[in-house]
């Protein structure tokens, strides 16, 4: 059966149910194939690269706040943050953290939300983004290179099919082609959106690899020792966001990153909305999962002083 012989409504159904999904799927597969490559040698000790890759500026700002507060270089009170003192700016090595502290000193105290709206980190974030683009992990601005080619091919298919049918219809003396005339550009817009996601296929693969590499870290998040002695807390937030960050390790979480309460959170005796802070295993990707549950202050967590003393007996006894 020749689909171009289908009557108008049936052809429109064929166009939207077969041609458009097939073109979108084909474009997606072709783009993935063309954007493949060797995993680049990324500096994994820089959690800001991973945070930006995962969710852009919002994730970077949240990570900077968590990391700097954890290390005592940023202070927090009533949901606001401020720089500890003048020495704090000199103590950090990361340009991004230095920019954050320098700017915060001028405008402090500020909430994390206000920091997010302030353009102070735009330049630093752009430097991170440029590095990620240079390594082929983040899509270039606009539609260019491989993506432009894929989009062009998709447009040719979508418009070609539509124009062919229109031509046949007109030839047969039918003029009810308005729906098809409108459908083709809409389909092209849909393909454009699918053809140009924020991350490249390689970037998605790196992100997925990172989640796998640090899966153990997420599982043992409760045992992280606060204070910045290791990169564990920063990498946890960099790779997974603040969702899996336990309140016991970072008691300021709910004050600094208040999540909007879901409807009915107070309405029933079922307190499932006030669950534990650390089980966000399903919450691994986007910026929308930044705050985990809506548990309040975590005041019962005890400050995470779990490292014990050792009673003054040092040495490598075990």
């Amino acid at each position: 059966m020749n689909p171009f012989d289908l009557p108008g409504p049936a052809f429109l159904a064929f166009y939207w149910l077969v041609v458009v999904p097939a073109t979108v799927g084909g474009a997606w597969l072709l783009r993935r194939q063309l954007e493949r490559g060797e995993i680049p040698d990324l500096d994994l000790s820089n959690p800001y690269l991973l945070a930006y890759l995962r969710g852009g500026k919002q994730q970077v700002v949240e990570l900077a706040v968590v990391s700097l507060v954890d290390r005592g270089l940023m202070l927090t009170e009533r949901g606001m943050v401020a720089v500890r003192d003048d020495q704090a700016v000199l103590a950090v090595r990361s340009p991004l953290e230095r920019d954050a502290l320098t700017r915060l000193r001028q405008i402090q105290p500020k909430s994390v939300d206000a920091l997010l709206r302030d353009p102070f980190l735009d330049a630093s974030c752009e430097a991170v983004a440029e590095e990620l683009r240079g390594r082929g992990l983040l899509a270039k601005r606009g539609l260019s290179g491989v993506r432009a080619l894929v989009y062009l091919l998709s447009m040719l298919v979508l418009c070609g099919v539509a124009l062919t049918k229109i031509a046949i219809a007109l030839e047969r003396g039918r003029h009810n082609v308005l729906f098809l005339v409108v459908s083709a550009p809409i389909a092209c817009l849909i393909v454009r959106r699918w053809a140009n996601p924020r991350l490249t296929a390689l970037g998605q693969r790196v992100l997925s690899d990172m989640r796998e590499l640090f899966a153990g870290l997420r599982d043992r998040a409760q045992t992280i020792v606060p204070g910045g002695g290791t990169a564990e807390l920063a990498l946890l937030v960099g790779v997974f966001g603040i969702g899996p960050l336990p309140y016991a390790i970072f008691p300021h979480k709910s004050a600094l990153f208040p999540a909007p309460l879901p409807a009915g959170a107070f309405g029933s005796s079922n307190s499932s909305n006030w669950g534990s802070s650390s089980d966000s295993s399903s919450c691994s990707s986007s910026s929308s999962c930044s705050s985990g549950s809506s548990c309040s202050s975590g005041s019962s967590c005890g400050g995470g002083s779990s490292c014990g003393g050792g009673g003054g007996c040092g040495g490598c006894g075990s």
Binding site: D43, L44, S45, L213, F214, G216, L217, T230, A231, E232, L235, L236
Partner: peptide, 10 residues
């Protein structure tokens, strides 16, 4: 220093 911090976390 950097590789160790990553390996410690991972």
């Amino acid at each position: 220093q950097r590789p160790l911090r990553v390996a410690q976390a991972a």
